[in-house]
């Protein structure tokens, strides 16, 4: 009988709590660099434990960074989406980065690796369109939280017949919620992921020969070229995911989101009023004065600009 262990984890807000975990066996996915196990807990019944074993960590210390990326993306997504992420994205339940063998706990993934379904998706146009829309919707929703996956490849994409789930965020990066000084544009552009998604869509549409042959766009079907217009351009010239959803005529709605810094606003205002007599009039708004909604606003503005712009 498998041993049950009580472990102390932190949730997406850094709050500690204890959970009982029972290891139930190996869990493999084609894209995970990190080791994975399935663990049983009281609620929910099963979780994925991504971890760095002592031996693996000694051989390759970079694995700790990858796990840190996974947790950072998971906490950001959870904070923005109120704890449970949209189905296209994984949901982080908790983590312990301080243990000798640090780990992240995730809700079980949906579906199967898409690599198991390539031929079906290649042959069924309607199904492929559903897949495409779901993949881009996943990027739209990750981008809404300022998360860039960093390696959108078939081995990190799952498919349950109706919906995509993008997993393995070990190469992910998160945009700053605010920027010092305010004026500088975010260094991280959520459009980075679009090229990877475009490659997958192209591969499913025109076959294996598409992989690695970006220069050969001229032979792509017109509908595919129209759909992926600008997707392989330099990042700052790419369309946003919402624009691709619009081209597909697909649902671009976002689930309800929360500003992860909403609880700080009162304190900022109090600080500004407290320090005004000490420092004179408050300085012009700095990066730290910018609220999440403004940051989001810029993103939406850029999107709207694209939507309203001329189409070639």
């Amino acid at each position: 009988m498998a041993e049950t262990m009580t472990v102390r984890i932190r949730d997406i807000w850094g709050q500690p709590r204890e959970v009982e975990l029972t290891d139930t066996g190996e869990f493999t996915t084609p894209g995970s660099i990190l080791e994975q196990r399935l663990v049983q807990t009281a609620k929910p019944a099963m979780l994925i434990r991504k971890y760095v074993s002592r031996i693996a960590g000694q051989r390759n210390p970079r694995l700790y960074e990858l796990l840190d990326h996974e947790i950072r993306a998971g906490t950001r997504l959870g904070q923005v989406y109120g704890g449970v992420c949209p189905p296209e994205l994984p949901t982080l339940v908790g983590y312990d980065m301080d243990a000798e063998e640090p780990f992240a706990l995730l809700l079980p993934y949906e579906g199967e690796p898409v690599v198991n379904h390539l031929s079906r998706l290649q042959s069924d146009d309607a199904l492929r369109r559903t897949f495409q829309a779901s993949l881009i919707r996943g990027l739209h929703r990750a981008g809404r939280a300022g998360v860039v996956h960093g390696a959108v490849l078939p081995r990190h994409v799952r498919w349950d017949g109706a919906r995509v789930q993008l997993v393995d965020f070990d190469t992910a990066r998160c945009a700053d919620l605010r920027r010092p000084g305010g004026a500088a544009p975010p260094r991280l552009d959520v459009r980075e992921d679009l090229a990877g998604a475009g490659m997958i869509i192209r591969h499913l549409t025109i076959g294996t020969s598409a992989i690695g042959s970006l220069a050969d766009h001229a032979r792509d079907p017109e509908s595919l070229r129209a759909l992926l217009e600008g997707v392989f351009a330099p990042v700052d010239q790419r369309p946003h995911a919402v624009e691709l959803l619009r081209r597909m005529g697909a649902d671009a709605s976002l689930p309800e989101t929360t500003d992860p810094e909403r609880d700080l606003h009162a304190g900022w205002a109090l600080f500004d009023s407290t320090t005004a007599p000490r420092t004179g009039p408050p300085p012009p708004p700095t990066g730290s004065a910018r609220k999440f909604s403004r940051w989001l606003g810029l993103l939406i503005l850029a999107t709207l600009t694209f939507r309203g712009g001329p189409r070639r």
């Binding site: 700080l264 009162a266 304190g267 900022w268 500004d272 700095t286 730290s288």
Partner: peptide
Amino acid sequence: RDQTRDVYAYLHH
């Protein structure tokens, strides 16, 4: 100063 402001807001909350 930005960090001081954030620490203030965090501890206040």
